[in-house]
């Protein structure tokens, strides 16, 4: 059984009131008939032009936004509200700026009753993401990369069933982004988590994804649903991957960029 099933999902700005997607004015329609499935413990990347409904799509699956029509099933049940087992790492800084890195990560460890155990867990996860020694720093005292790490630690410490990441590394510099990419591969190998990851970086999707879903411009439809069955680390220059890369570029209308 699939972990997530998205069936004929559509979303319009104005509440649809039961009207089908064809009745909505074109500029009000964000998602139009989106369907796909995600396997348990897989890493799914969403790529698509900026301004398409990628973030909206993820917010709906996470339960922060409701669809105008269609269905989203997680473990066979419709999504109704956000869950503390489905953690969303937001595009902007989602760390609480009035809390230190330690206090932020501890928010994710609220479910641990025993104080000593909670403390040990928080320290362990801070170390896991490599920001131990900075636990008493406030977010504005950390670099962009460290802030992302703290946020990932806060998400992972909940032992999430689903992990949503909305362009988490897009604001980072090139080197930091490459490091974070590598570490996401490790994180996925270490944790039994299904990850849904939005990126506008096609290479990032090819490095990370078990599945790449290529989305169109608004109103968003699924242009392609590609399965990537390659072990990590991946060489994007190798022939089968290079071929998929060309395909994705082509699908996104980037003929001259190759």
């Amino acid at each position: 059984m699939s972990k997530i099933e998205v069936k004929s999902l559509y979303k319009a700005y104005v509440a649809g009131n039961g009207r089908g997607p064809e009745q909505c004015a074109k500029d009000q329609l964000i998602l139009k008939d989106v369907s796909f499935e995600v396997k348990e413990r897989s890493f799914t990347c969403f790529v698509g032009p900026s301004g398409c409904g990628k973030s909206t799509l993820l917010r709906i699956i996470a339960g922060f936004d409701s669809p105008s029509g269609g269905a989203v099933l997680v473990d066979g049940r419709p999504v109704e509200r956000p869950s503390s087992k489905h953690i969303f790492v937001f595009q902007e800084d989602g760390l609480f700026p009035w809390m230190t890195a330690y206090e932020n990560v501890a928010i994710g460890a609220r479910w641990i009753e025993d104080k000593k155990e909670r403390h040990e867990q928080v320290m362990e996860y801070l170390e896991l993401v490599g920001i131990d020694g900075f636990e008493n720093h406030y977010p504005h005292e950390l670099s962009g990369g460290m802030r992302r790490r703290a946020e990932v630690a806060r998400a992972l410490i909940t032992n999430p069933d689903l992990l949503f990441m909305d362009e988490p590394f897009s604001a980072l510099d090139f080197m930091t982004r490459m490091h974070m990419r590598e570490e996401m591969v490790n994180v996925h190998a270490m944790f039994d988590t299904t990850i849904l990851f939005i990126t506008h970086d096609i290479d990032e999707a090819l490095q990370l994804g078990d599945q790449i879903i290529v989305l169109s411009e608004r109103p968003t439809e699924v242009k392609a649903d590609i399965t990537l069955d390659f072990p990590h680390p991946r060489d994007l220059g190798s022939e089968p991957l290079a071929k998929i890369r060309r395909e994705v570029y082509f699908l996104m209308g980037l003929h001259a960029a190759l």
């Binding site: 956000p82 503390s84 969303f88 609480f96 928010i107």
Partner: peptide, 24 residues
């Protein structure tokens, strides 16, 4: 975003006010 994050981690009631809404 702060409210969404708080909801996501299951903060509600007094804890939501003391840890998120008041400090924000």
């Amino acid at each position: 975003t702060y409210i969404r994050v708080a909801t996501n981690f299951g903060l509600k009631g007094l804890e939501l006010y003391m840890k998120v809404i008041f400090p924000a």
